[in-house]
Design a protein around this nucleic acid. Structure first.
Lengths: 138, 138
DNA sequence: GTAACTGCAAAATATTTGCATCCTT
DNA sequence: AAGGATGCAAATATTTTGCAGTTAC
């Protein structure tokens, strides 16, 4: 997938710029989710802080990445699965946050169990965040 | 439970002050979760913004309220169940966010289904956030 | 060449901290 | 009376917006 970066940008009708390439590459290479600060650190002073905000926002709008609900309410982003298209997300996978190393994993292969809602409630999306120790820290 | 406010504060070794009483009462009366801004609005100019921050923090530390992981990463708080004690939370219930009215419900009676984690991962807590339409908006 | 993207400056918002004063016990 | 809680001021952090200059196509 590392070489599909330009293709991903093109597919989403985004012009190919240094910052977009670099930031998308960070996500592809990252095993977990990234916060704005992570990107700022890993990209050095290469881009303006504002550019990172705008790039992340663009990626979210295009369905390339999505935000993750976290227990500590910090803002984190992760790559969407291919099924995600603009305005139509299929993020029904489990997120795992390690209490030790702080890394966030997208467990794409763990299916989200169905939740029995009270009468009258209609679900459109279900997010599951599991926290504990990851395979490296257990 | 409306009359147990002072008792709740005492039980947690907190001195009984106007702001704590008022803020705790807001939570007891609220059908859903509250954000810092909600509290600020509903309490008028009665308390300083900083007092609200500190009160919420104190309540979280004592296990009276807990933060809710939200899809939009806004910070929201809700009353803990009685089983929550200091440093030892049992928040394994489902949270529901209504896309229409924005209200957050704690579905205490909906049990969180077990999640099958990959080998090596150990779960200590599971949060489930369901979004969609609530019983009033469906 | 044109529309889109970036960087810089600055505004708006959110959160934290220090300290003097006031209130609860 | 003593310790903790509050209010105010200010420091910090976070996010958004406007605009002029630059770049991708």
């Amino acid at each position: 997938m590392l070489h599909g970066i330009n293709e991903t940008l093109k597919r989403n009708q985004l012009s190919i710029t240094d910052s977009r390439k670099k930031i998308l590459e960070l996500f592809v290479r990252a095993s977990g989710a990234l916060a704005h600060a992570d990107i700022e650190n890993q990209s050095g002073t290469e881009f303006d802080r504002v550019t990172i905000y705008r790039t992340l926002q663009t990626f979210v709008e295009k369905g390339i990445i999505h935000t993750i609900p976290t227990a500590d309410n910090s803002v984190r982003y992760a790559l969407c699965k291919d099924a995600c298209t603009e305005g139509h997300h299929h993020d029904d996978h489990v997120h795992f946050m390690c209490d030790d190393c702080g890394k966030t994993y997208c467990l794409d292969h763990v299916t989200v169990p169905a939740v029995a809602l009270p009468k009258g409630f209609q679900a459109t999306q279900t997010d599951v965040i599991v926290s504990g120790k990851c395979m490296n820290c257990a």
